[in-house]
Each structure stands twice: as structure tokens, then as C-alpha cells.
């Protein structure tokens, strides 16, 4: 079942070239989809459209069967959580517990429920010891974990990670990727927006955006096999894949090497 369906979506910022043109895609319930593209490919614009922070020029977005419009936007936001790129600019609360509570307060959860859920989800992202801490005492990775806890507590069906790891150091990045894996395993639909192929191969499906258009969309395996599209996408290829291509060109590859490189590409 498709939880998100996007049809012919177009959007442009004031008198500039189209940020998105005729984007059509869908996301199945419970899957993990990566939206992959270089800077300026329109991928972050897409996430803002899905959650109704921007209004499309034309086209349609359906979330869980409901068409996104001015009346439905608040209901749809209850179903989608989003973790943004800059850890500092999305930390609303004065302390960690306040920030985790923020979304629940907006959804009018009972106070006792909020208190329980703060404990539960802070535990999930290993931030229990930091509940009373203020944001300037936290690292970027810790702030992103707090943002994740806040969204998990709101029990949304879908979580979008909009380049959520791009401002973090390798350690922070790894921990966030691990939480994403866990979240998806627990049944939440996950959309990661990234320019990093290494992150994208972890997902079930990859959608590649280039200059506001979908140039490829398919299972991760199929996308990795699509040499032409990958070469035209301006993305950085994974090293094992590059090696595979070199071997192919020289007609040297054998099944054993191919299999090994494939496993390495998928980061397994």
C-alpha cells in the first residue's frame, strides 16, 4: 500500500527556474526510501512540499489516502515527522525534555503522558542523562537525537530525514544512521534525503533527483546496476562500484569478484 503518492508535482521559487518539475513518485508503507541528489537538485524542496511548508504550483500530494490542501495540512503533519539539517535551528525547547515535549504539547497530549513518553523516548535515543541539559551543552549529533525522540514521541507513521546527518561528524553520523535503521525496523516509513550514496544504499529503494526531475527510481539493487543513469547523475559513485566498472571495461571481471564488490557496495 502506498502511504505517499505524488503526482506531477511542480514548484518554483519566485521568478527562478523550476526547483521541481513534474515529479511523480510513491512511497510504500513501512519501506525506507532514499531521495538522492546533489545540492540544488530540489530534494529539500520536495520534503517541504510533502509536509505542507511550501505550496505546490501544480500537482497533487496524497498522504495515507488524503490529498494535501489547506484543510488537511494539520492532519497530515500529525502523520509525518521531519528531522531537518541544522541541529541548532530546530531545537525549540530550553532544555532537552522541553524539546522532546514540544510536539506532544502541540498535539495536546496529557501532561502525565508527556512525562512518561519523554522518559521512554529519551531512553530510546540514549539521551536519558541529558534531560535537564540546555542545547548549548550538547553536540550536533545529540541535538539530532533529541529531535528524533521528539518526533518518535508524536507517533508519526512517516519520518523524513532531510540531510539530517550532513552537519555532523562521522561519529554523530553513524549513530543517527543506526537509529534510522532501528526506526524503520520498528515499522515506521522512512524517507532519507541525502547526497551521500553510502547512506542511500542502506535503504530499500532509491529515487534520484537531478535539476528538479526524477531521473531514476527503483530498488537499490537495480539503481546500482544502472551504470548510465548513475554516471549522468553527477553523484559520487561508490568505490567498489567504480572498480566494478573498470573491471567490466577491461573485460576482466569474474562472478566471484563481482559478488564481493556487490556486497561491499551495499555496505554489508
Amino acid at each position: 500500500m502506498n502511504i505517499i503518492e505524488i503526482k506531477d508535482l511542480s514548484f518554483s521559487y519566485q521568478d527562478e527556474i523550476d526547483a521541481l518539475s513534474n515529479v511523480t513518485l510513491s512511497v510504500k508503507k513501512g519501506e525506507w526510501v532514499s531521495i538522492l541528489g546533489h545540492n540544488g537538485s530540489g530534494k529539500s524542496t520536495l520534503s517541504k512540499l510533502i509536509i505542507g511548508l511550501l505550496k505546490a504550483d501544480s500537482g497533487e500530494i496524497k498522504v495515507d489516502g488524503v490529498i494535501l490542501n489547506e484543510e488537511s495540512v494539520h492532519d497530515i503533519r500529525r502523520k509525518i515527522g521531519i528531522v531537518f539539517q541544522n541541529p541548532d535551528n530546530q531545537f525549540v525547547g530550553v532544555t532537552v525534555e522541553d524539546d522532546i515535549a514540544f510536539g506532544m504539547e502541540n498535539l495536546c497530549f496529557e501532561q502525565s503522558d508527556i512525562i512518561d513518553k519523554i522518559k521512554e523516548y529519551a531512553e530510546k535515543v540514549s539521551m536519558s542523562e541529558y534531560l535537564k541539559k540546555e542545547p548549548h551543552a550538547l553536540s550536533g549529533g545529540q541535538k539530532q537525537r533529541v529531535a528524533i525522540a521528539g518526533i518518535l514521541a508524536m507517533k508519526t507513521d512517516i519520518i523524513i530525514f532531510d540531510e539530517a546527518t550532513s552537519m555532523l561528524d562521522p561519529k554523530g553520523r553513524e549513530s543517527i544512521m543506526n537509529y534510522i535503521k532501528e526506526i524503520n525496523k520498528a515499522g515506521v516509513t522512512v524517507i532519507t534525503i541525502t547526497h551521500d550514496m553510502k547512506e542511500a544504499v542502506l535503504s530499500d529503494r532509491i529515487i534520484i533527483l537531478k535539476e528538479g526531475r526524477v531521473i531514476a527510481c527503483g530498488d537499490t539493487n537495480d539503481i546500482l546496476n544502472d551504470k548510465e543513469t548513475l554516471n549522468s547523475s553527477n553523484l559520487e559513485l561508490l568505490l567498489p562500484l567504480k572498480l566494478q566498472y573498470l573491471l567490466d571495461e577491461a573485460n576482466l571481471s569474474n562472478d566471484k569478484v563481482k559478488d564481493i564488490l556487490w556486497q561491499l557496495s551495499l555496505n554489508k
Binding site: 509525518i80 521531519i82 501532561q111
Partner: peptide
Amino acid sequence: RSDDLANAMEARSFVPGKRRTRL
């Protein structure tokens, strides 16, 4: 920053003037 923050707040279902519970 305020632009980003407004987006983040809205995305987490904040509606100015609407009733909220409090931690």
C-alpha cells in the same frame, strides 16, 4: 535561523494561538 525554526515548529504541529498542553 528564524525561518528554519518556524519551519521546524510548524512541522511539529505548532499552530499559533491554538490550545496546547504543557509539560
